[in-house]
Write a protein that binds this DNA or RNA. Structure first.
Lengths: 228, 228
DNA sequence: TCAGAAGCTGACCAAATGGTCATGGCATAT
DNA sequence: ATATGCCATGACCATTTGGTCAGCTTCTGA
């Protein structure tokens, strides 16, 4: 269920997080959204420790107390953002079967991962910062849920290889290759923009990158570009 | 010259950084090394803002004052680490010519980049954290020196493509692909270990990864695996 | 032997940190 | 009107931050 665990200490009471029956005031929803967006940006930029509630509050246009009022604590806010990002991440971990077409599956895989990086660059960077810092909050998720998912996907890839539909490459390394090469365009955006001399990536840039990665990776694994 | 520029403010006097003629005391050298190593780790874990001099001092086994005494300021220490990392990085940006063998060049490229991630994981993560935070200190380097290097390499790749030695893929995207897929094993080490269930990557693991990346990327670009 | 420099560090500082709380505003239901 | 509950926030707190400095020890050269 994508449960994020804190490395120590138990959760404090969080007034804003207790489901509020329903019919949340619009003001509340609006403010919560503003805080979450601001926090995602600030945490992504500075990491968990480097981020300050003051900076988040400023960016959300609210007093610091208000942020605490809604989110309870810095840690709670951070965990909530991580969980939101893990949900997005999980949403594209769809199921596949040995009967599917390798080319189609891998292309969809690359494309949806690329879209995730593009649609939620701040969230992607937040995730990256968390891993970079040793994944103190996500360790359990990584070695649990996510690991299982990777293993099951790897089994399918291996079966494909045995049926001669692709080269017998290490399927886990292949997954890492796809993750890293797509994630790169969110996490290292500053580098990409600096080197290419742009000030942002357009939709067509992203399309081109997706096509490039699909082409090179599929060919590199000996997958014919489309089923007949 | 790999000069790192601060985003604002001018450098303060740094007693420890002024070249000390030569014959630096062994104590000094030892302490400086301890501080640099500790700082690299702490900055990599928590980012620039999240890192505290106290944490660095503790890890180096020295009082906080001593860290300031050697390094002058937090900013100075950080810049120095970035410069050291950029030097290592530059060391593997060797020259190539259109006459070289594509397979050899790309394999060496992948291998040396992989070695960098392996030999200096903390430095790699420090670099990643800097880029993640928008590259406030490295922007100039990225859009200057590094950009030039990329462009010159790209020209060679294009020429190879025209001679039919490789597919006509976008050379810049190819460079990004190699950077991201190798960098991944330093920056996302926590994820890689969590998913594979190991507690560290052995030399043979690294060798296997290098072989995998070389194989897939070369084949993916239509480069025959070795010159005759 | 001794003066001066270099190495080192505890005490201290203003500023910023995450978090608490008493209070005030403002709707709706009585 | 008046009471009730949520919304909102300024004032405040202990702790930690990066950085300074006076004064200590240790080394070096004459």
């Amino acid at each position: 269920m994508t449960e994020v665990n804190a490395p120590s200490g138990q959760g404090a009471k969080e007034p804003g997080a207790k489901e509020k029956s329903e019919a949340n005031g619009m003001i509340r929803q609006h403010n919560e959204q503003a805080i979450l967006a601001a926090a995602e940006r600030v945490f992504a930029l500075y990491g968990y420790r480097g981020a300050s509630l003051q900076a988040i509050a400023d960016r959300a246009g609210l007093p610091k107390s208000n942020v605490l009022y809604y989110m309870g604590s810095k840690r709670g806010l951070y965990v909530r953002l991580l969980e939101r990002m893990m949900e997005r991440w999980n949403a594209l971990l769809d199921d596949i079967s040995v009967e599917d077409d390798p080319a189609e599956v891998l292309e969809a895989f690359i494309r949806s991962k690329m879209q995730l990086s593009r649609r939620h660059p701040e969230g992607s960077r937040l995730f990256a910062a968390e891993i970079l810092g040793g994944a103190p909050f996500l360790q359990e998720y990584l070695s649990g849920e996510l690991r299982d998912w990777v293993q099951s996907r790897a089994a399918v890839f291996r079966e494909w290889a045995e049926r001669g539909l692709m080269d017998p490459v290490d399927p886990i390394l292949l997954i890492f290759l796809i993750w890293s090469s797509t994630q790169h365009y969110a996490d290292f955006e500053a580098q990409v923009l600096g080197i290419t001399g742009r000030d942002e990536l357009s939709d067509s840039d992203v399309e081109e990158i997706t096509a490039f990665l699909t082409r090179v990776i599929l060919k590199g694994c000996g997958i014919r570009p489309r089923h007949a």
